[in-house]
């Protein structure tokens, strides 16, 4: 709880994102009857948690000054590998664990490439993403109609605890844990320090290489897990299920007020960003736009949203933070 409060205090931009989400929600409610219905809200929460899991690792990686472009392929991997393992008769719980652990290891490969071999994050993670895709294609894991999803995945994706979807509950718990880790542990501090200024962090005794490696590993694991629940929801696992989530994972954290350059932001912000993004996704189609206009509107709203929620850094933005940034120039 303290983590959440600290996040709220620390980040006015998160408040901006929450406001943005609220506006979208109100517009939806006014425009369409049933938008605020329990069913729809539950549905939205499930979708938002997909984005939330995809963006979990991404947030850590970006806070640490990196970027993980392998997210969508690891999502596809999580779904397909699980389906294949279960089709082969493996215990379903064990299969989920295997998928997540392999995701973690793939993430670790990203981390090693970036920290030990000094490959640029974009290049490294894109390359690894390509390798994951190649693995799925080459090993012949794919069925033309999509692979059937085991019951555990669809159970998690569709189950409910009372009125609340299971996925949303899991997400809430994970979000609280991540918030505490970021705000209240040495590792959390180290992530922020590494992302803001690598040299300062190293000279202050932080093992920035290890910190980065862990963020990439977490990202791999979180993406694979996202793949499990997303495929469970869809009911089929195929190569393209991860594709929408590359953009979404980055957009959510940026809307939530994180700096894409690292060092600033919170997972709480990303959660709000994921909700805002999901609202937007479900709202726009209600306006009966043709596909082209829909894409344009989507892009524009996100740009405006990001501009409104992140005013820091330009020195010309509004709000106290921007003024402070200018004051710092004084003297």
């Amino acid at each position: 709880m303290t983590g959440v409060l600290a996040a709220l205090r620390g980040s006015r931009t998160t408040l901006g994102a929450a406001l943005f989400a609220l506006v979208l929600f109100v517009v939806g409610t006014v425009h369409t009857a049933g938008f605020a219905s329990g069913d729809n809200i539950r549905q939205l929460l499930v979708f938002a948690s997909f984005v939330g899991f995809a963006a979990l690792g991404q947030t850590l990686v970006v806070l640490g000054g990196g970027l993980d472009l392998s997210v969508p392929w690891l999502i596809s991997f999580g779904g397909i590998q699980l389906a294949v393992l279960c089709a082969g008769g493996m215990n379903q719980v064990l299969a989920v664990v295997v998928c997540v652990v392999v995701g973690l290891l793939v993430g670790l490969v990203n981390g090693i490439g970036v920290t030990v071999f000094g490959v640029a994050p974009i290049v490294m993670t894109l390359g690894v993403g390509g390798l994951v895709q190649a693995y799925l294609l080459a090993v012949g894991l794919l069925k033309a109609t999509g692979n059937d999803v085991p019951t555990i995945a669809s159970g998690v994706a569709n189950g409910a605890l009372g009125p609340i979807p299971v996925v949303a509950v899991v997400w809430l718990v994970v979000a609280l844990v991540v918030a505490v880790v970021l705000a209240r542990t040495r590792f959390g501090r180290s992530v922020y320090a590494t992302g803001e200024n690598d040299v300062v962090a190293v000279l202050s005794g932080i093992d920035t290489g290890r910190v980065r490696m862990i963020t990439y590993a977490v990202s791999g694991a979180a993406s694979a897990f996202a793949g499990v629940i997303i495929s469970g929801y869809i009911g089929k696992a195929y190569l393209e299920i991860g594709q929408p989530f590359l953009f979404a994972s980055i957009a959510a954290l940026v809307i939530g007020g994180a700096s894409i350059l690292g060092g600033r932001g919170t997972y709480f912000g990303t959660v709000v960003g994921a909700i805002a993004l999901t609202l937007l996704n479900s709202l726009l189609p209600l306006f009966n736009l043709d596909p082209a206009s829909l894409s344009i509107a989507y892009g524009l709203v996100i740009l405006v949203g990001v501009r409104v929620t992140t005013t820091r850094g330009t020195g010309r933005g509004w709000g106290r933070r921007a003024r402070r940034a200018e004051e710092s120039e004084a003297g």
Binding site: V180, T185, S190, V199, G205, G263, S328
Partner: peptide, 29 residues
């Protein structure tokens, strides 16, 4: 500016940065 400080962070965070290990209690700062 380049080697000493996390410029956007507070005096508190900057001053404790290299001593975090001595502030950990039961896994938390």
């Amino acid at each position: 500016q380049r080697e000493g400080l996390l410029l956007t962070r507070s005096v508190l965070v900057n001053s404790s940065l290299s001593s975090l290990f001595s502030l950990v209690r039961r896994g938390l700062l």
